[in-house]
Amino acid sequence: MTAPQLPAARRISPQTWFDFATVLVALVLYSIAWPTLFVTHEVSPVAAPLLAGLAVFPILFVRVNPAMGWAISAGAALLISVGLQPGADNDLPFQVVHIIVLFVLLFAVALRASVPIVVMAWAATSMLFATTMPGSAEGPLWGWAIGFGALALFGYLVRILLASRRKLERQEEVTELERARRAILEEKARIARDLHDVVAHHMSMVVVQAQTAPYRIADLDPAARAEFESIGATARTALNEIRGLLGVLRSDGQLPEHAPQPRAADVVALCESALRAGLPVQWSVSGELTSVPDTTGLVVYRVVQESMANCARHAPGAAVHVELAVEPGMVSVRVRNDATATVSQPGAGGGHGIEGMRTRVVAVGGELHAGSTAAGGFEVAVKLPIS
């Protein structure tokens, strides 16, 4: 089903409508100026169309360039007043149509042009009328200046009013965007509080149960005791990281936990924790992990953490190899798992693990490559600058 089409008249912009109206007005004025020019002035039939055009057609510049239209119209008025002789029953140096066009263009100049051009147009128009209009020699010359000054001032005030209205509309848009942003932040804060309450409660119960299991269960062998200790330590670490992550979502003035973020040097402890949890992981470190900056080190830690989680999820039981190499200006990370009968592509279940890692890596100017290996496993390779 196709969307309803707007009428062609509604698809035309207001500027186009204004241009159509301007052309229509110009044609109407031209149809008046041409035949009446023979009544108001002594002019030859050959020059009449041209002189009528000079009187009328500068109004076509009223939107695109009113200053140029005013200059053409005022210059034509001066030439006509000097070069043409008025008719017997006419005292005006140029036609009434020409005067109307000059008034409209002067108003448009005050509405659109810069202040110096407005002042120049006002002064030149006042001088033109003061020196060419009948009776100006006997009357005060400042009368024309006051009249045209009032017209120019009115146009300038309209210009200020329109500019203030546009500024107010833009401010209303900014205010609406800010209101929407605050609503989003408040919703995120509410979600963060709910998540914190739910996750913190259940994770705390896991920690308590793991820590109290050796005292509640009799005759617990050392292997099981170590397993419970590993579960408790892993749960505490996950709880702290979840608190820090949810703290980012809070915008209600409640600060997040100020626990230090993981660094590259903590990857070894992460691998040891995964090994205690039953993941067959092997790791090797080349170079000093303590020399990696904290921001880059956090990315290294998260990449290894997410990669090992993917290995445990998609290739259970397969050996995992973690390789870290710190070189001058760069740190390299490789996490791969061996082939297994139940291996599946990471992300096949609709997760965003690899894309999340890629976003973190790109944010610090690094590169990430992920894909299957020739031996049938899966590998994540990352290179990060540490300059």
Rank of each mutant, 00 (worst) to 15 (best):
S284I: 09
D219M: 07
P280H: 06
D252Y: 00
W142A: 10
A213M: 12
R63M: 04
H258T: 13
G287L: 09
F20P: 04
A67D: 02
P316A: 07
R165Q: 13
P385L: 08
A370Y: 07
V199Q: 15
A374T: 15
A233S: 15
P66N: 04
A370N: 08
V97D: 01
T36H: 05
A74T: 08
H314T: 12
A226D: 12
E229N: 12
A150K: 04
A48G: 04
A265H: 13
I242H: 05
W283P: 00
N310F: 03
T237C: 10
I59M: 11
Q15M: 14
S344V: 15
V28P: 01
H369V: 15
Q345W: 13
T342W: 11
V62G: 06
Q85E: 12
L245F: 05
I80H: 03
V380M: 12
D266Y: 01
I32D: 10
T175G: 07
A189L: 03
T359R: 14
A152T: 08
M357L: 12
A277T: 05
P86T: 03
Q282F: 00
G83M: 13
E187Y: 11
N65H: 14
A26W: 03
E169Q: 15
V299A: 05
A233W: 06
R358N: 12
E138W: 09
P86G: 02
R336F: 11
L168R: 13
A265F: 14
D89L: 10
A52M: 04
V303R: 02
A113T: 03
A113E: 06
A110P: 01
G87C: 14
E227V: 01
A77R: 05
W70A: 02
L84H: 04
I12T: 15
H352D: 05
I386C: 11
T234L: 10
I354M: 05
L54R: 02
V206Q: 12
G135I: 10
V322C: 05
A183M: 10
G350Q: 05
K188S: 08
E227W: 13
A363S: 15
V322A: 09
A21T: 13
R250L: 09
A269L: 08
I184T: 09
L111R: 08
Y30I: 02
E379Y: 01
V207Q: 14
A312S: 15
G317A: 02
A124F: 10
S204R: 14
G139N: 04
L246P: 07
S31R: 11
G371N: 13
A192M: 07
Q95K: 00
Y301V: 00
S164W: 11
P14Q: 11
V304D: 00
E178Y: 00
V198E: 12
F154Q: 05
A224D: 07
L177S: 10
A163G: 10
H314A: 04
